[in-house]
Simulated scan of single mutants.
Amino acid sequence: MSVLLGTSGWSCAHWDGVLYPPGMRPGDRLACYVAELAPVELNASHYRWPRDASFASWRRRLAEGFVMTVKAPRGLTHA
């Protein structure tokens, strides 16, 4: 059995100086996250479904074998 440890999202500003170097541009956070952790949950999809172009961009930037789970939209889970 394998266990993957990740977080819900990668854009937390309060991780500056913890996971991310201080002052890192938000657009560079995903690359830094991928270098440290194996999976991530896409939290934004719960609030608003991302554009197809966003999914394509993430796919290009993620390492081979990296796991991204997609949180179900709140309309599905809370309606």
Rank of each mutant, 00 (worst) to 15 (best):
60 R>G: 06
15 W>M: 07
74 R>L: 14
66 F>M: 09
64 E>C: 07
35 A>C: 13
57 S>H: 04
55 F>W: 02
59 R>T: 06
3 V>D: 06
23 G>S: 01
40 V>W: 01
55 F>I: 13
40 V>Y: 00
11 S>A: 03
72 A>K: 14
20 Y>A: 00
26 P>R: 06
75 G>V: 11
33 Y>S: 12
50 P>Y: 01
52 D>S: 07
8 S>R: 12
75 G>S: 10
63 A>D: 15
25 R>G: 06
53 A>R: 01
32 C>D: 07
22 P>K: 04
55 F>L: 08
29 R>S: 00
23 G>D: 00
70 V>W: 05
46 H>F: 15
28 D>G: 04
62 L>K: 10
23 G>T: 02
35 A>M: 08
41 E>T: 11
63 A>M: 12
64 E>G: 11
58 W>E: 07
79 A>E: 14
69 T>D: 05
21 P>K: 08
54 S>K: 11
46 H>K: 14
6 G>Y: 10
1 M>Y: 10
74 R>S: 03
42 L>T: 02
73 P>V: 12
7 T>M: 05
27 G>F: 02
55 F>P: 09
73 P>T: 08
15 W>F: 01
43 N>G: 06
1 M>E: 10
44 A>Q: 04
32 C>H: 05
56 A>L: 09
28 D>A: 08
6 G>H: 13
15 W>C: 05
66 F>W: 07
65 G>N: 11
6 G>V: 08
19 L>C: 06
12 C>Q: 15
41 E>L: 13
51 R>F: 08
17 G>H: 03
9 G>L: 00
65 G>Q: 06
55 F>K: 07
55 F>M: 01
24 M>G: 04
17 G>T: 05
23 G>P: 03
